[in-house]
Design a protein around this nucleic acid. Structure first.
Lengths: 342, 342
DNA sequence: ATGAAAGCGCTAACAA
DNA sequence: TTGTTAGCGCTTTCAT
């Protein structure tokens, strides 16, 4: 392996001079710089960032913890993070927790050991514990999408789930629905709780009593298609099934749709369906599902900007920042007035 | 920052003993181990991987270079890579080239400097140049999805694009189509060339003369929705437009679909449409597009397994491996016999 | 403008 | 079983 020493020897200078050339210092004679550059070229020298990181105590790397790299919502966030990070010369380490608290714990530890300069973090457990090693290393964290129980001093960028759920539910109520089922991921996840809250708020406002049997929470914690499918079947099996279903996120809504179809029911004729989060590639080709759409890309961008400002200590503001992004209701074809009169 | 030295002092042992405890060495007395563990706990010590990497000359990190983290095909690959890497205790650095040769160059350099232990690489340029710094550092590379001009000694895992395109084109021919348009990304990308090759092969076999005006290659290199839209419009503007269009990948097919609809044409009544690569979330909800589907997740898994075996030198095989995965034709609703007789 | 020495946090090799 | 020494590749500090 060719190191800075080899370059120095070849160029007939000290390692310090080579270091200066690499880092673009002013204080190098032009002829010396050229000599060094030639040596670098000839030897095929590539600087070693890990040695550099060790001494500088920074890595120009940020960690991104999300729960499913296959979900377009997180993928779009990731794109926003990546684009922004790279524009500021940071690279991103991707961590896919799969909503698994164990993986979350492991990744947080890995990132802390790796000495990433900062972390953008969508919690899988909703708990504080996994953050411990990050806290110990005093690594800046920006929460994204989800809050964490007992954590009040971290920057956070998220969508307004209460509002989004309220808009979606109100839309259904306005169409005449009274029995609206809702399926969400674990109660430990803040977005699940917030979406239920928005849902209840809309019902309360319309003086519709809340029927807890219509609220299906997946205690296995996931927001997956399979869970959406299973919970929707439970809803459809109810003695008095709902006339509309609220999918807690895009994947659950897809699962719900599959379960509804399997029953031979038509959407929206027999039952209405709405979804939190859009799936762009789906809606472009088949603008069917009524959704509330979150500005995922923007979330990624803002989170990264805040994080990098914290890292570089350019942030005058000492207190935590809380950015709440407004979701947008997009009414398509999956919602209609209920058939049955209640 | 608390280091191994602090732990050693607190526990009243040498740093070496602490190191042994951290790394699970057998040769530590149980009582000593406990002392050390207690000190670690009390001080909140988290080992520093960068120091460790410097001396061990390995980082337990692999780089994944793809062109669009927003494209479900690459996203599924990424999932396969991530799942496999983590199971072998590697983390992955995600690099999104956006099909931009400059970004590709920059990322390859960053990965080389970062001393990742290996790289899984979907080329954006189709050129060898960006790999230079990786070669210099002798970092193992596994190519994925795409070959690179003049590179013949690297492991590669890819789908059989020639076969896939052949199957798709033959399906159209069997339906009676004679004028089949094809839109692909840059000629520099091997999959674009291969798909054209498979397309031509099917036409030749059916004795259909090849009309170059039906072959639209996007020389701006991308396989994007916007490009699919634009090239399809060109195809539709032809004096004698095609009765079927072959989208070079999933995103281009979506763009094609949008352009076709904009013209007020019906699929498949007025024109057939097929796509290379599926979009799962779309096809589940709306099983419309006839596609050839590649085993993307498997590609990611295999590439990672090969890479890690190379990294750990457990690979007996010295020669490069070339894994060619077979795509699957899925016939749905977007293809039908042509209306016009030619 | 250039260089020598020290050391970032850790582990390999050897010694005790 | 435990400790000592040296050093991974680089930058900081201070000297020249």
């Amino acid at each position: 392996m060719v190191t800075i020493k080899d370059v120095a020897k070849k160029a007939g200078v000290s390692v310090m001079t080579v270091s200066r050339v690499i880092n673009g210092s002013k204080n190098v004679k032009e002829s010396t710089r050229e000599k060094v550059l030639r040596a670098i070229e000839e030897l095929g020298y590539v600087p070693n960032s890990v040695a550099r990181s060790l001494i500088l105590n920074k890595t120009l790397t940020i960690g991104l913890v999300i729960s499913d790299i296959t979900n377009p919502f997180f993928t779009t966030i990731a794109r926003g993070v990546e684009d922004t990070a790279i524009s500021k010369h940071f690279t991103v380490i991707l961590c896919n927790t799969d909503e698994d608290p164990e993986k979350e714990m492991m990744y947080a530890e890995v990132l802390a050991r790796s000495k990433v300069d900062g972390v953008i973090y969508a919690s899988a457990s909703g708990k504080k514990a996994p953050l411990k090693s990050l806290f110990l290393k005093k690594i800046p964290i920006v929460l994204i999408d989800r809050t964490i129980e007992g954590v009040n001093d971290l920057d956070i960028v998220r969508g307004d789930s209460v509002l989004g759920a309220y808009l979606l539910t109100k839309h259904l109520i306005d169409l005449g629905h009274r029995r609206i089922g809702i399926i969400v991921g674990s109660h430990f996840i803040s977005t699940a709780r917030d979406r239920i809250e928005g849902y209840k708020k809309a019902l309360n406002e319309a003086n519709i009593p809340i029927d807890e049997s219509l609220i299906k929470i997946n205690e296995n914690s996931k927001f997956s298609k399979e869970d959406g499918y299973r919970l929707t079947k439970e809803l459809l099996n109810l003695e008095n099934p709902p006339t509309a279903i609220f999918g807690g996120n895009n994947l659950m809504a897809v699962g719900a749709l599959l379960a509804i179809r399997e029953r031979g029911l038509e959407i929206p004729e027999d039952i209405s369906l709405v979804s939190f989060d859009d799936i762009e590639s789906l809606s472009e080709v088949y603008p069917f599902l009524t959704v509330v759409k979150q500005p995922a890309y923007t979330m990624g961008v803002i989170a990264t900007e805040i994080l990098i400002r914290r890292i570089e200590n350019r942030d005058k503001i000492k207190e935590k920042r809380e950015i709440l992004l407004t979701p947008e209701l997009i009414i398509r074809k999956s919602t209609a007035p209920p058939k049955r009169k209640i």
